[in-house]
Design a protein around this nucleic acid. Sequence first.
DNA 1: TCTTGACCTTGAGCGCACTCTAACTTTTAG
DNA 2: CTAAAAGTTAGAGTGCGCTCAAGGTCAAGA
Lengths: 130, 130
Amino acid sequence: MANKFLSIGELSRQSGLSAYTLRYYESAGILKPVGRTPSGHRRYHREDVIWLDFVLRLKRTGMPLAEIKRYARLRAQGEETTRERFALLELHRERLAAQIAELQESADALDEKLQTYRDMLAAATVPEDR
Amino acid sequence: MANKFLSIGELSRQSGLSAYTLRYYESAGILKPVGRTPSGHRRYHREDVIWLDFVLRLKRTGMPLAEIKRYARLRAQGEETTRERFALLELHRERLAAQIAELQESADALDEKLQTYRDMLAAATVPEDR
DNA sequence: TCTTGACCTTGAGCGCACTCTAACTTTTAG
DNA sequence: CTAAAAGTTAGAGTGCGCTCAAGGTCAAGA
């Protein structure tokens, strides 16, 4: 138990991504070339899983794969890119704030519209008085 | 001034959508067949603009065109679909709330990560003590 | 040993939401 | 009157992010 490695099928189940997608991410440079068994089967290590979780977090916030890939490339280059990665994430954080604000505004507008629907329905379901 | 109609170019400028996209929305059933001049040029009326604004609001909140189209179809069918449209919007409102909550959670996680970057950079830029 | 299922690679295909091309007509400014 | 800008259509092309098909290899249980 608490296996050291995960096969692609296991990681697929754990992450919710298809095995296709995991291979695609690797080929796209988002996951670095992962360890292999002697026969060529992928073995994902704890660090790979942690990195994937972070990637999925960025994805959930709408960062395009191309930009995630850029971050991954910087990360692979090591410490001297720390400042650049920081700047990239900071920019994304700002976009995220803007996105949240816009969604909130739309949610408010939607609430108003829903209220007019409620009023309409209330009027329609009581066509006679009492 | 305060023209009664808009040409496709004018609406394009006003809405930020390309004329291509406006025609595409019409062909996709999102904008109902719009008025034409005798020679076939489109003329958008005030109601068309108002509806487009609402469509764009739904779009900004991540509603796929197929679902917007469903709403448009119901709307075209008239009053007896009011309840269904209301339900559709209410469901979307809930998804929107979930989306906002998830983004907020990711924003918080990102803030933590940014803080560790700040700590790292602070440590790295003062390698000697003073 | 056989079979079943998980895995491998390469490359094609797909769904969404546009975006553009080509060939043509209409409108507008000078 | 004419040139250029803006409009029309049908249909092809694009970019993103997967998703799958084909044709194999490998591992584990009956």
